[in-house]
């Protein structure tokens, strides 16, 4: 292949799932209690997308990765301290809310407009990556809408593998029902890949890479444009986090069969 890929990954923060996530009614609609004070992590779906993109870029000469992040600038800065040493990328930051109560349509609009303005981005070589869902609000539609706004019609959802072929085409595995994959072959970029978990583990830390990334990340954060996203016109009737039921018993001598039977009974109930 004569030219590498231009990989744009859309990904931002979600509250650390270990924290207490308590929905409350804020002045401007629903919110999470103390959300700005909670530690945040990279949305795990977007994380898979970023690591796949970095891996692909490293294996494909003349490729480059941009991470487009929409979130509160100060929280994004904290996030970068964790991910900068893991993958080579250039940050493009948008300063705005990243909670689970923004409307996917507005988020997609802001992301698409931002991507259009990335200097040096060749949209004919664009692989637009992101998560197929989000840990903050599983709308599952954002990437498709970003793709539409960028006029990319080849869109693949719940991707677990993306392999460039020698003839220039790209082979893609998408998750479908019953634990099976749908295998597609795409003529080439541009395309949208909304990733499921992918196949790669979280990359190890590379402090030197982190230092190198941070040289462009800090200016990018300073230049972050405000993005007006919210949920205009949307009325939230009810908001709640998924309920957990914990009935813990400590049993040390149960057989696997007994455990399986008990789990099935519990599910049936």
């Amino acid at each position: 292949m004569s030219q590498g890929f231009h990989l744009v990954v859309c990904g931002s923060i979600v509250p650390d799932p270990l924290q207490t996530l308590e929905p409350i009614q804020g002045a401007e609609g629903p919110a999470l209690k103390n959300e700005m004070m909670l530690p945040a992590v990279l949305d795990p779906w977007a994380g898979h997308a970023l690591y796949e993109a970095a891996h692909l870029a490293a294996a494909t000469p003349d490729s480059k990765v941009w991470l487009v992040s929409l979130g509160p600038r100060a929280k994004l800065q904290q996030l970068m301290m964790t991910i900068a040493p893991k993958a080579a990328f250039e940050l493009v930051a948008l300063d705005g809310p990243a909670g689970g109560f923004t409307e996917a349509w507005e988020t997609a609009e802001a992301l698409a407009e931002c991507i259009k303005t990335i200097p040096g981005l060749d949209r004919s070589r664009l692989l637009l990556f992101g998560g197929c869902a989000s840990a903050s609000r599983d709308a599952g539609v954002t990437m498709q809408m970003v793709g539409e706004r960028l006029e990319i019609s080849d869109q693949f959802l719940a991707v677990d593998e993306l392999t460039p072929q020698e003839n220039g085409t790209i082979r893609i595995l998408e998750r479908i029902e019953a634990g099976r994959y749908q295998v597609s072959e795409c003529a080439g970029p541009p395309l949208v890949a909304a990733w499921a978990t992918g196949r790669l583990p979280e990359p190890p830390n590379n402090a030197q890479l982190g230092m190198q990334n941070m040289r462009s990340i800090m200016p990018a954060l300073q230049k972050a444009q405000p993005a007006r996203v919210g949920a205009e016109g949307v009325e939230f009737l009810e908001v709640e986090v998924p309920k957990q039921r914990r009935n813990t018993r400590v049993v040390e001598d149960a057989s696997v069969d007994e455990m399986a039977r008990e789990i099935v009974e519990w599910i049936r109930k």
Binding site: L38, Q78, M81, T82, A84, A207, G210, M211, M214, M218
Partner: peptide, 21 residues
């Protein structure tokens, strides 16, 4: 959280240290 600690212990401007942490 980290935002508070970085100020208290004066490494809010040191991203090399924040990454190391």
């Amino acid at each position: 959280g980290d935002e508070v600690r970085q100020i208290l212990w004066r490494f809010a401007d040191r991203y090399d240290l924040q990454m190391a942490v």
